[in-house]
Design a protein around this nucleic acid. Structure first.
Lengths: 250, 250
DNA sequence: GCGCAACTTTGATCAGGATCAAGACAAGAT
DNA sequence: ATCTTGTCTTGATCCTGATCAAAGTTGCGC
């Protein structure tokens, strides 16, 4: 027996083989599986801006993000693009049972992935049902997040959209730190204004204007163009239009 | 051995215990499991308009839609609502491993669900890993659909949104029939203009106007307010803004 | 038949965000 | 220092879809 629990984003642990703390499948490596894992596991790194895989490409691995940030997005023929997900450390990329990528994956910052060759991974899943269970839980989480994002895209105003995105980023950032948010948290924006626009279904000009507007209202402060200071998180949350007590995508 | 394959929406089969053809978990009942299944399985029916469950409510069952249509939606405090999913026969409702419903589920038409009490279902999942695998595949499908819907909500014009919705409904309807679409397919709109608006992130007036506009352009025809005739599906698809050859949510 | 309620269409006007256009700013490169 | 390049901000204008309002349609109960 061992005490491995299903780690949540706020409750990560060292897996012993990967360089950082994370919660994805390879974080659950068990000692006697490591030999085999090492045979099928490898790291890949990407520079900021590089594509990881294009929609429709054959995909011979599954992976989890070790460090850096990637985006999951889709582009129409005429160039309109929509981000459908933000991949942060510990997030999982890939589809056991599928052969092609359904969306574009692009490295936003320098990116390291911990990859598993797909077939051996699938075999491992069969032998270790806990992995499948874990993956199902993660997928259900992602599905809920995706659905919660729909109300942002479909029903929120530009200002609410920006506030929603900043809230998510602030919360994700806060969960990386040990100290709980002493008011006056701050974080580095990983996205350009254009990426934010693609995530929110806006134009980059509107994003810029609304960020400025939130600054003018005192809801946020900026140091340079990328560092965001949030004097009062509840104030920001109240700008999202959401219920105060939760529900927002984590 | 048996030849049960992972059924897709276009490839359903009789499960032998449920009244109609469908592809969800209970469609995969195996003869020797039936006795036990009957002990934990039951049907529930809802009238059109009735809620099945509210977001946040404790949820003691999982289920699949046997007949009728339900919506999955979310409402903000001020009343703005966004549908995040359309549940058609064979779709699965519920979260193994969760105790509360993440979204509102409402019956749009008269609805029959095939329900399984959650704990016994989860036990069954543990004993029969194929169920978990199947559920993971279905969840991955739903996740892809949810993400594909994001580009509709975030980047499409009102006309494209309507065309996208009609295309999905037309395709789903077509997959229920044996004959492939002899051009000139038609189907009954299951949704009111308001529900369509909530699905597409529009107002009901805009939906009405754009439906009229598509009619005036000859892309669709209407018999009464609810029956839609599609003389040329490709013509409709070209109005969605999507790539001709696929990709659209199924 | 009539009346009523729910749903739908259509019109007039408004506004939020898109679009077009010009600069501002910062970090590197020469 | 100057030029370049990419990113961001700000302004002016336009247009799509929202909002407000009224009337048309359908189905149902009586």
């Amino acid at each position: 027996m061992n005490d491995i629990s299903f780690n949540t984003r706020a409750n990560t642990r060292d897996c012993g083989t990967c360089p950082i703390r994370h919660r994805a499948v390879c974080a659950r490596c068990q000692p006697d599986e490591l030999e085999q894992l090492d045979a099928i596991k490898y790291y890949r790194t990407f520079e900021a801006g590089q594509p990881v895989i294009w929609s429709g490409d054959p995909m011979e691995f599954v992976s989890s993000v070790v460090s850096g940030i990637a985006t999951l997005s889709q582009t129409m023929e005429d160039g309109r693009t929509q981000m459908v997900g933000l991949l942060l450390p510990s997030d999982f990329i890939g589809r056991p049972g599928r052969n092609t990528a359904p969306f574009d994956v692009v490295a936003v910052t320098d990116l390291t992935l911990c990859c598993f060759r797909k077939t051996p991974f699938e075999n491992m899943m069969e032998k270790t049902p806990a992995i499948g269970t874990r993956l199902l839980q993660m997928t259900l989480d992602e599905l809920d997040s995706a659905r919660e994002w729909m109300i942002v895209l479909g029903r929120k105003t530009a200002r609410e959209k920006i506030a929603s995105l900043l809230t998510i980023l602030a919360r994700r950032d806060a969960s990386l730190h040990v100290k709980p948010p002493r008011d006056g948290m701050s974080f580095e924006l990983p996205l350009t204004r254009e990426s934010m626009a693609d995530y929110l279904g806006l134009t980059l000009e509107t994003v810029s204007r609304q960020v400025s507007a939130l600054k003018k209202s005192g809801v946020i402060e900026l140091q340079g163009k990328r560092r965001v200071i949030i004097p009062d998180l509840n104030r920001l949350i109240s700008e999202t239009g959401d219920d105060m007590d939760g529900g927002l995508i984590t």
